[in-house]
Structure formats: C-alpha cells, structure tokens
Nucleic acid binder design. Structure first.
Lengths: 152, 152
DNA sequence: CGCGGATTGATCGCGCACGATCTATCTTGT
DNA sequence: ACAAGATAGATCGTGCGCGATCAATCCGCG
C-alpha cells in the first residue's frame, strides 16, 4: 500500500501522547481492581483513603484539591466510603460550611491490608524503582503544564 | 515536624506514579474540552473519530480494540455519534453479527475542523516534540506491561 | 446590627467505563 | 444437516467525573 493517500494530517491513535496517557491510566485501574476488590475499594476510593491515611480529618475541599477533583465528584465518593463504614463526615463546629472527613477505626485498620499494594503495582509496571520515579516526575510536570494552560 | 511519626508505609499521593498518570489524564481531558466543544465532541468521541478518520468502516469490536475499551462502552458512544449525524451504524451483510461504523459526509468534514487540535495540545504540554514522543513511547510501554500482567 | 458578596458542600443531569448477562448469528464437528 | 460452542454487539446496573446550580454559612463594610 502507498505511504499516505492524501497528505493526511490525521495523527494515528498510537502516535498520540494523550492517547497513551489515557490508555495507560485505564490499564492501571484494571491492574488495581483485583488488588482493591478484597478491600472493598475502587481505585478513586483508594486514592481518597491514601490521602486520609496521610492526613486524617481533612475537609472535603482539601481532599478535592489533593486529588484535583470537584466537589461534585468527591461528595458522592465520600458518601460511599461512609456507607462502607470507613470514614465519618461531620460539619466543623467552628465553621459550619466545612465538612470534616475522619477515618473510622475500620478505615484506619484497612491501611495495613493495603500496605502490599504499591509493591504489586510497581512490579506490574515492569519498571525499576528509579525509572518509575523519573516517569512519575515527568507526568507530574506534564500535569502542571496542562493545568497552567487551563487558566485563561 | 519529625520526618515520619511511625515508620509510615503509606505513600503520599504525590509520590505515586499511578496517581500522576491519573491526574495527568484528567488534566489532558480538561485541556481538550474547550477545543472539542466547538466540534460537539467529547474526548472519547474524538478518539473514536480519530480512529475512523484513519480507517473508515471499522467494526465496533475493532474500534474497541484500538481504544482498549469494552463493547459496553463503545456501543453507547457510537450511538451518540450517530445521533449527532457523524457516523452510521449498519450490520455487515456478509456477517450479520458484525456492525460496521462508517463516517457520514458530516463526519468526514469534521476532520478539517479538528486539524489544528494536536498542535494546540502539544503546545499546552509545554514539551518539545521529541520529548513528547519519548514520553508517549514510555507510556505505551507502561500500558503494555500492565496489560500483560493482566492475563492471569 | 444587618445587608451583600464570598466560600463551602451538595445536588442534578449527562457522558464515560466496566463486569455480567443476553440475543443473534456464525462455525465446527459429526 | 444439525446440535454445540464460539463470536459480536447490545443491555443493565454501578461508580466515577464534570459543569451548572443551589443552599447554608461566614465575613466585611457601612
């Protein structure tokens, strides 16, 4: 077959950085799924728990900031975690606008059961630790650049 | 504050490769949104159109393979593209199980209007072309590794 | 004190994304 | 030729993820 019929300006999916990020993200959540299922968590729920394990008692807004998500995403997510008995949600007494999210005993206990997951994921990436860290940094910078171009 | 209270095995969000991919993916779709809105497309719909601009008349299954998506995701997506008048869906006469997806005149015409988008995205990434291509390849390999660890 | 704007979450509607399941069609073995 | 299995899409229910909107609370200024 010829090289290109008209001088095609259409990039193939495989050629696009954005698609590779999109596909890698899906592949990641698929690898996480069987690891998180025994804990009763989805991948976004796991990210919220990670955030709370790092700092308990955060507000809804702060969790959203850390995960780069809107309240319309975080609120229902937290309600499901609450329904699962992993967190509690309560208005802050000093500022009734704010909702504080706190780990329950069960939520804290889950931390140990999740301890082996990062190792499993790193394994699945097929990367050495330093390569993974370098890639993480590059993706972080990419995110920052994209977010910066988003204010206008 | 001290370096770490107990020898904490909890990785912070910012430390995790998977989260950086997750966040970069979201940031990408946010950058795409205002570019695609004038075309009446969402980001996944744009990916489908890209695939069809590259090869018209694909089956539903093949589109799913290219995008790494299930039929339960692709079918409704295609229905929306059909409702928008961009594609037609019809059973293959030779094999009635198969549905062929074809661009309409309008769907083909959209290709020109979308031509400037990849340039805009590359710009927003803040990357030189060669750096973007390298990153694309790394993400592609990452996806492949993860998908491979998924067969078991 | 009290009004006006700002901040914080919650709600709603829509569009992915998946696993599980279903139906229709095709293929294979005998 | 026909039953058994395979294959291709479609459907359903659940859970993100967002923009737009709303209600409640807080803050600041007169």
């Amino acid at each position: 077959m010829p090289a290109a019929s008209p001088p095609s300006p259409v990039p193939q999916l495989a050629e696009m950085l954005c698609f590779s990020v999109y596909a890698a993200n899906h592949a990641l959540t698929r690898v996480y799924k069987p690891l998180l299922e025994p804990l009763g968590l989805t991948y976004p729920q796991y990210l919220v728990m990670l955030s709370l394990w790092g700092e308990d008692g955060q507000t809804v807004g702060r969790i959203g900031d850390q995960l780069f998500l809107e309240s319309s995403t975080v609120t229902p997510l937290l309600k499901r975690l609450e329904a699962a008995g992993l967190v509690s949600r309560a208005r802050d007494q000093a500022d009734e606008r704010v909702v504080r999210v706190r780990l329950t005993e069960q939520g804290r206990a889950l931390r140990d059961k999740a301890a082996s997951i990062p190792e499993c994921i790193l394994q699945a990436t097929g990367l050495e630790l330093d390569a993974a860290l370098r890639l993480r940094d590059e993706m972080g910078r990419l995110r920052d650049s994209l977010a910066a171009r988003d204010e206008d």
